[in-house]
């Protein structure tokens, strides 16, 4: 093994420093002057401020400065009196709420099967869900046009079978079409955190419960659901925010009857050129979404904390 010549002889003379970092006199405080921690955060914060916060502030400002000049809440009072705004607000809220409820029920049921009634290919399926999350939402509406549209699979089946000129399926241009698209697109957003939470559920607990004679519904209610509740809350509130903000699905539906807040912002600004009005609607949408997003962050923090506790 080693030739035992490692290291200098015990009384090696002090070597001259070849480069820098000389041992310093004992007792002296040699704190290198360092950039404080918060200073490193300044460049990215500045970038974010310039490209995101500053424009948002300008939107708020513009919403308070009507074209006629001066500062007033005129844009807001006008927007609030418009029928289209009230309808858009109502549409946005109810479609988002209903979609979220649908996503939660569907996502919970599907994730339950993947996690606890495993089948070959289940793993690949969860990867498919990850890919699904990376695709744009409007693809779903585009696909639904081919399934339920005036020319499309469902109506095609009907006309093939009955010989009628038109099929009966015509809900795509209604809020129900938007609802179906949003439930389809956002359900994976609920499933992913749920699958993560389910993988934390102690299988021994499930086995112990079934050995004690509990049947599947009772196990789901008493063991799995409590464990999944924080993730359900987090996933649900995220989906609620994303549904409130959803634009692509509504735009592709192309229905004049279904207007949501983001759609209203778009049509006021781009189609009508009414910037103060668009900015006022935008501020309402921002307040609504950010408030809900704050709730989501709180729920997500709890879900994470709960998970950590469960693991400890």
């Amino acid at each position: 093994m080693a030739s035992a010549t490692a290291g200098p002889p015990p009384q090696a003379p002090a070597e001259p420093a070849t480069r820098g970092r000389r041992p310093q006199a004992p007792g002296t405080r040699h704190r290198t002057r360092r950039v404080p921690g918060w200073a490193w955060a300044l460049p990215p914060v500045a970038a974010l401020g310039l490209s995101f916060l500053y424009p948002l502030v300008l939107v708020a400002k513009q919403s308070l400065s009507p074209d006629s000049g001066g500062h007033s809440f005129a844009a807001y009072t006008q927007v609030f009196h418009e029928d289209s705004f009230r309808k858009a607000l109502w549409n946005t809220v109810w479609i988002a709420t209903a979609s979220t409820a649908g996503c939660l029920v569907l996502g919970f049921a599907l994730a339950l099967v993947i996690a606890f009634v495993p089948f070959p290919g289940g793993k690949a399926l969860s990867r498919f869900i990850d890919v699904f999350l990376a695709f744009p939402s409007f693809l779903i509406t585009l696909a639904l046009l081919f399934v339920y549209g005036t020319v499309g699979m469902a109506n095609g089946l009907w006309t093939d079978a009955t010989g009628a000129a038109h099929g009966p399926v015509a809900f795509l241009q209604t809020p129900w079409g938007v609802l179906l698209a949003e439930v389809t697109y956002f359900t994976p957003f609920v499933m992913r955190p749920l699958l993560a939470a389910f993988s934390q559920v102690d299988t021994a607990q499930v086995e112990a419960a079934s050995s004690l004679g509990a049947r599947a519904p009772r196990i789901v209610r008493q063991i799995i659901l409590p464990e999944a509740l924080p993730s359900l809350a987090a996933g649900g509130s995220l989906v609620l925010v994303l549904c409130l903000n959803e634009f692509g699905i509504v735009l592709f539906t192309g229905a004049k009857g279904v207007t949501t807040l983001p759609m209203l912002v778009y049509s006021k600004a781009i189609l009508d050129g009414d910037y103060p009005g668009a900015c006022a609607v935008a501020m309402v949408a921002v307040v609504l979404s950010v408030a809900l997003y704050a709730l989501y962050r709180a729920a997500a923090a709890r879900a994470l904390g709960g998970g950590r506790r469960a693991r400890a």
Partner: peptide, 14 residues
Amino acid sequence: MDPAADRTDTPQGA
């Protein structure tokens, strides 16, 4: 393995 040539921040035998 030339003892005189290497340099460490703490002298050997610290």
